[in-house]
């Protein structure tokens, strides 16, 4: 059950090489007798260090695609590879390990745990990766890393606060810190600013941009805001279940 044992270790690919690919991805939702085909044939290659924005109208399947790429959900066809390996062929606990150590998620509605404070929420992935004793042994180190991240996010003064006492923008900063805790290779962001006012959204966006520029963080972001999408290296549009490139 220990995640450490399963940790997928591979040398970091050189900047620009593909780490995540999707080909012919199909996703169908069944509701009783009717079927909704959300993704029909999606092809995508995410290169290391890239910042990709995926655009699309509401209901076009952006979140669905992100969940598939992030190994949260299973497709009805097509192949997703991470580091050259077909993630559909991994066991469910290996996929959990992948999510824990290689991927980071930021959601529109922050999704922080209300019972944990800011620091504990940030430590979430570390608390999943390490056992009771393992965590104790590394406690200081892990806490320092979490505090560092929260400092970067400008949240170091609210360590003991619970999420319900924070504003939306503050919550999203904590969510980003949490997503970065285990040093993910790919950061998925699903409309990270969708629930925030313009100014706050811009600030969050600036955080992501800085991450990308300063540490070469690979980011796959979903948005339906063209002005935000423009900050990315590449813009893709999801429409009619197919992903195509778009002009900046």
């Amino acid at each position: 059950m220990s995640a450490t044992a399963d940790k997928i270790s591979s040398p970091p690919p050189a900047k620009g090489s593909a780490i995540l690919t999707a080909s012919g991805l199909r996703k169908v939702f069944r509701m009783g007798d009717s079927e909704i085909q959300v993704l029909s044939k999606v092809d995508l290659t995410v290169a290391s260090g890239e910042f990709i924005a995926i655009e699309g109208r509401s209901g076009s399947g952006k979140s669905t695609l992100l969940h598939l790429l992030g190994a949260l959900d299973e497709s009805n066809g097509g192949v997703i590879t991470y580091d050259g390996r077909d993630i559909a062929k991994l066991s469910s606990s290996r996929r959990a390990t992948l999510r824990n150590t290689q991927f980071g998620f930021v959601f529109q509605f922050y999704h922080l745990l209300p019972e944990l404070n800011v620091l504990e929420n940030t430590l979430l992935s570390a608390m999943i990766e390490n056992s009771l004793l393992g965590f104790r042994a590394k406690k200081a180190e892990l806490r320092n890393r979490a505090k560092d991240l929260l400092t970067q996010m400008g949240m170091d003064h609210r360590l003991r606060h619970r999420p319900q006492h924070l504003s939306g923008g503050e919550r999203q900063r904590v969510a980003i810190a949490r997503a970065l805790m285990n040093n993910p290779r790919v950061l998925f962001a699903d409309e990270p600013t969708g629930n925030l006012d313009f100014e706050t959204g811009r600030q969050i966006m600036a955080v992501l941009e800085r991450l990308h520029q300063q540490s070469g963080q690979t980011i796959v972001m979903v948005t339906h805001d063209r002005s935000l999408a423009c900050k990315a290296d590449r813009i893709l549009v999801l429409e009619g279940g197919i992903l195509r490139a778009a002009e900046k």
Binding site: A3, G70, S93, I128
Partner: peptide, 14 residues
């Protein structure tokens, strides 16, 4: 919460 914890990598066993 269960969804969140799973998305951060908790296994079903956990």
């Amino acid at each position: 919460d269960i969804g969140i914890v799973k998305s951060v990598g908790a296994t079903s066993y956990s």
